[in-house]
Design a binder for these strands. Structure first.
Length: 243
DNA sequence: AAAGAGACCAACCGCACACAC
DNA sequence: CGTGTGTGCGGTTGGTCTCTT
């Protein structure tokens, strides 16, 4: 199975190819006879028991084997976002919020990548939190939640426009780089912070094998802006690790 | 107390990538 | 090389809860 972050660019930039047309038109996602909507405790129990016994994966066949009238995608989502033991429930701590802001400034709406740096939090949870809290908070502070730049900045200025687009492009490039790097992170167990207040040191929680990348990402998070130098550094890292 | 508005968040949907065949 | 399948990401929806009037 490919790594979650092996994918790149947003769906809006991608074109649907002939090969994957109808990929969802399979029994798994057939709407006939399948239940939708909120999960019941009984369904949660069935799913949890099955995964505890058989493990994750094979989502398409899992519902039938587990005795659930759900499509595989629904089962996967429920497990990933709610039932997984590693999912941390409860309020987003202030330092988690700060980390989300920094990572979003760096990565944009790459929720899975952001979630990958915040142990116990899911992409869905972070996405919801962003849309309901942080974007409004930034707007209230006069900051564009998409660009993290002041809302009243003069976009017509040639210099500013150039600088802005350059920064944006660098950021897009970083997205691709970091998406590739997720292959590297995949499978590396994140240290549980056991409910403690996570501070920025928590983003150093991976094993030593990714120290270089981890510290690199941390340095990016701590930057006030993503610079071309960062991109070059990232490129160098990618080349050295691929080679 | 009731009704409407807004906030919140679990879940759904469409789409695209990786990989096996 | 082309196709089918499995998977999961990001955007969106809609039900429920909370607040305000």
């Amino acid at each position: 199975m490919r790594s979650p972050a092996a994918r790149k660019t947003t769906s809006k930039t991608r074109t649907r190819t002939k090969t994957n047309v109808g990929a969802d038109a399979t029994p798994c996602c057939s709407k006939v006879g399948l239940k939708k909507g909120p999960w019941t405790p009984q369904e949660d129990e069935l799913l949890t028991n099955y995964i505890n016994k058989e493990g994750e994966g094979r989502w398409r066949t899992l519902p039938k084997l587990a005795g659930l009238l759900r499509c595989g995608k629904s089962c996967r989502l429920r497990w990933m976002n709610y039932l997984r033991p590693s999912v941390k429930r409860g309020q987003i701590a202030p330092d988690e919020e700060d980390l989300i802001l920094r990572l979003h400034r760096l990565l944009g709406n790459r929720w899975s990548l952001i979630a990958g740096r915040i142990p116990g939090r899911t992409d869905n949870e972070i996405k919801n939190y962003w849309n309901t809290h942080l974007s409004k908070k930034l707007i209230g502070q006069g900051i564009d939640p998409r660009t993290h730049k002041p809302l009243n900045s003069d976009r017509r200025s040639p210099f500013k426009a150039t600088a802005s687009s350059s920064s944006y492009m660098a950021n897009e490039e970083s997205n691709r780089i970091m998406a590739n790097k997720q292959n590297y992170y995949h499978g590396i167990e994140m240290r549980s912070i056991n409910g403690e207040e996570g501070d920025e040191d928590d983003i150093n929680c991976c094993t030593t094998t990714d120290d270089v990348l981890s510290s690199f990402l941390n340095s990016l998070i701590n930057e006030d802006a993503f610079t071309y130098q960062n991109q070059m550094q990232a490129d160098a890292l990618v080349v050295s690790e691929d080679g």
